[in-house]
């Protein structure tokens, strides 16, 4: 490395500027934020299905949800945690195990929108995501915390219920485990926790309880309805 030129393959010379360029590229890469696109496997819930025909609508912000945290100082690095794909994967696995029928809506439920006939449409939102890694807390665990907001609406967008729910996931440090892998694992645990929280507490949400009670009071045959005109069908 001390000479001005380094002998390369086939007798050609590898200029030091190439090495400098490579070093600069490596340094620049090291300065970038840590990026995690959360990936995991999510099991289907083992429970009695609720006899409901539920629609699901994911907003663009939910489908492509990502969290960005800028580095606070030179010693720290920024983080981008992309959860959108894993979110939809988890909810698409969970909901069909909870309800007798689940459909993806053609459009966002709102007045005049032609949609499938369902009992209600669930719209999940991720309102907040926080993370902690051992360098932040001096505790030997990686953590992810999320706050969800759910809207339960009619196919024409009338609100039936709205509530928030938190989810938390952590994973211990492990030998030879990178920060990215640990944050991914913590996010998967948080998503599983979100599913567990939702599945076990859905019928305990007061507004949902009221809605379910109203449905039970109605004479048989009224439940269900037509797309775009479902206000009275619930």
């Amino acid at each position: 490395m001390s000479g001005s030129m380094i002998s390369g393959l086939e007798g050609r010379y590898f200029m030091p500027r190439h090495i400098v360029l490579l070093a600069i590229c490596a340094l620049l890469a090291a300065c970038g934020p840590n990026e995690v696109a959360v990936k995991g496997q999510f099991p289907s819930p083992l429970m009695n299905k609720l006899p409901l025909n539920v629609g699901i609508w994911y907003d663009e912000s939910f489908r492509t949800h990502e969290f960005f945290d800028e580095a606070k100082g030179r010693a720290e690095s920024g983080w981008i945690v992309k959860t959108g794909e894993a979110q939809t994967q988890m909810w698409d696995t969970l909901l069909p195990g909870m309800f007798s029928n689940v459909v993806h809506m053609r459009g966002k439920p709102e007045p005049g929108q032609m949609n499938q006939a369902v009992d209600a449409v669930l719209i999940p939102h991720v309102d907040e995501l926080q993370y902690a890694i051992p360098t932040h807390t001096n505790v030997k665990v990686y953590e992810i915390w999320m706050r969800y907001r759910f809207e339960l609406v009619t196919p024409s967008g009338k609100s039936l219920a709205e509530w928030t729910m938190t989810a938390y996931g952590k994973t211990p440090t492990a030998f030879l485990q990178s920060d990215e892998a640990a944050v991914n694992l913590a996010a998967v645990v948080a998503l599983r926790d979100a599913g567990a929280n939702f599945a076990t507490n859905f019928t305990r949400v007061p507004q949902v309880q009221d809605w379910l009670a109203q449905r039970q009071k109605r004479p048989a045959g009224i439940a269900g309805g037509t797309a775009g005109n479902a206000e009275g069908s619930l």
Binding site: S44, L46, M47, V189, T200
Partner: peptide, 26 residues
Amino acid sequence: ALYPWFEPRTAPLYPEDLEKLMQQAP
């Protein structure tokens, strides 16, 4: 296999909690 009943949030803390869990047929 038993999701979501053995997650940190939902796992039974006492043996008596198993009784409640077993009331769920699946």
